[in-house]
Each structure stands twice: as structure tokens, then as C-alpha cells.
Design a protein around this nucleic acid. Structure first.
Lengths: 171, 171
DNA sequence: TTGCCTGCAAATAGTTTGCACACCT
DNA sequence: AGGTGTGCAAACTATTTGCAGGCAA
């Protein structure tokens, strides 16, 4: 078993939470994957191992994990909330076209929370750093086929683009 | 009229969007306030000036403003999406207790997007930096009345706390 | 005059909640 | 044994969407 999963079991116990198979399973899935799955994706992914687990349990567990500071919560307007099992402080790069989320370690990122603490006296418990734009892969596709800017179609296309608007080009 | 509102009208026209009273009103409200209002708050706040304006229009306009990069979108899991009319790059400090959102300019914050561009080749269009925790005001209240940690009651309490969980204290 | 934008109302869907039973401790 | 956590289904509600008429250009 992953050492992080073991630490999770101990943390639950220490905090007075019960160590249930569902909680362990969800946590294990999150820290194992490099993806940023939604609640529903987690639910479906664990169907095999926990056939009786309900979506409600997934939501409740995710809330708990976020509160414990073990996973990051990535909510966007109009988008499904996604979860990030990597606890290290990093930048999330959200592609508005293919909807993928890429991680990038950024040196000195911890200085931001430090400023909040020292300059504003804010007690920081969690943080979140995101940039939105076009990932390198989509940039290549767009250059190859300029019409793709509007319709979006890529190698591994998760689904529809994050945003629709665009009545006409700059006049 | 605010010069930013004037610039907004011109931007709309240049992009081929129509300059409607609703759009201008919503934009003006957002850049005028220091708050981070939700769609519904904007809707209610503009009832007097635009009695016939519908919530749908507010949502559509907000989407447009975000797409144009004129306002920031602050979505949290389970929380209403809020909007930030201040276009300058800053840190949002979200208090988990009183739900207020405070702004803080942080020197060198623009370096983050720069790293994403240079190190990862990501084309940055928007960005978002947030820390979650306890604001100085709530910290004071909690010190004065330690029991307040659970129930949350403050000077100007917007409403219920952002998070509920907490079965029992650390054992 | 053209067709984008608004307003209305219904639909959508992610998430939450209440309750009874199960199982972790 | 005790009571937290789970599962189920219904409820909730923020947000989206379709359509007809209004108004910006």
C-alpha cells in the first residue's frame, strides 16, 4: 500500500474520523492518478471495486479531503468541480480549448501565502493558483488548422470547449 | 461617466458586440464596487435601474465580461460563483468563516504567468490566485470567544459558514 | 431593416440532504 | 454497544437554454 494512503488512514484515526473502505479508496484513487477527476469520474472509476458506493458518499468524502487539506478543489463557473490529489504547491494550467488541466511547479509560489500572512495577517489554510489559456498541444493544432480556433478538435479531445461565445471577429 | 465604462463601450463596439444598457449597467456596477458580488446580487442591485432585466441576461453578460477578460470569475465548490471587477492582478484572500473575499496586491505575481509561458509554452489568457483561510477579523473574534470556531458569529456576518464538517476534535 | 440581445419560463444537472441501516471503533 | 458513515432517493438551486419580440446599429 502507498505510504500516503497509510498516512491518510492514520490522519483519519487521529482526527477521530472513521477509516472506511470508501474513504481510503477515493483517496487512493486521487493520489494515484495524474488526472484531475470530477466527482462523477471518481464514482465511475471506483464502480468495480466498490459497486455499492453512492455518489453522495463520493461528494461527502471529497468535502472531507478538501477540509483536511489533502486534495485541492478546482471549481470553475459552469464547469464540473474537479479535484487535485497532488498536495504539493503548484500552478494549474487550465486549457480553455481541450479542458485539460496541466500541473507546473513554480519556484517561489509559496511566497504568495507568506505575503498574505505577513502583510495582511491572513491565516492561510489552503491555496490555489491557476492560469487559463491555450495549452501547447492546442496551439499546435490551431496553427495547423486555423479554422480549428472556433470548433476545437484535437488528438485526445475530452469533449466540448469550455466556452462558447463569439458572435463575430474583430471588426 | 467612468472612463473604464467608456472604454468598455468602445471595446464592445470594436469587437462587434452591441452596447446595451444592461451590459453597461452590469459592467459599471462591477467596476464600481469593492465587493465580489454573485450574479444574483448584481441582479438585485440593478433592479431599481433596470426593473425588467432578467437573471438570464445577468448570467449571459457576466460570461461575456469574463471572456473579454474584463472581470475575474471566482467559483468555489458548493458556493455561488462571484465576480471580481478589479482587473489588476492581485491575490484573493477567501475567509472560510465569514465568506468575505479580500484583495491583496502581491509583488511579483505576474512572474507566475511568465513561468507558465516560458517553461511550459502555455498561452495565458486569464489567471487566478487565491488563498483560503481565516481573515484577521475572524481571528480576533475566535480568540475572544474560542467557542465561536464552530458556530461563526461576527461583526458583519454575511451568512452561514463556507464549510460545515467537524464531527469531533482531535483525539 | 437586420439580426443580435433581452426577457421569460422551463429545463438541466451537479450537489446536497434526510432517513434508516451498516459497520468501524 | 454506540454512534459515525453509507446508501438511496428526493430535493435543491444555481445556471443554462429555447423562443418570440425589442432594440442597437
Amino acid at each position: 500500500m502507498n505510504h500516503r494512503v497509510q498516512a491518510f488512514r492514520e490522519l483519519l484515526a487521529a482526527r477521530g474520523y472513521r477509516v472506511t473502505p470508501q474513504r481510503v479508496g477515493i483517496y487512493e484513487y486521487l493520489v494515484t492518478t495524474d488526472e484531475h477527476p470530477s466527482a462523477e469520474e471518481i464514482y465511475r472509476a471506483l464502480q468495480d471495486r466498490y459497486p455499492t458506493m453512492s455518489p453522495a458518499t463520493v461528494y461527502k468524502t471529497l468535502d472531507l479531503l478538501v477540509e483536511l487539506g489533502l486534495v485541492g478543489e478546482l471549481a470553475f463557473g459552469g464547469e464540473v468541480t474537479r479535484y487535485d490529489g497532488q498536495p504539493d504547491l503548484h500552478l494549474n494550467m487550465v486549457c480553455l480549448q481541450c479542458r485539460r488541466i496541466l500541473d507546473l511547479p513554480v519556484e517561489g509560489l509559496e511566497r504568495v501565502a507568506q505575503v498574505a500572512r505577513e502583510k495582511a495577517g491572513f491565516q492561510v489554510l489552503r491555496e490555489r493558483h491557476e492560469v487559463y489559456g491555450i495549452c501547447p498541444s492546442c496551439q499546435r493544432v490551431n496553427r495547423a488548422d486555423p479554422a480549428a480556433d472556433d470548433q476545437a478538435h484535437h488528438e485526445a479531445e475530452p469533449s466540448r470547449p469550455l466556452e462558447e461565445h463569439r458572435p463575430q471577429e474583430v471588426g
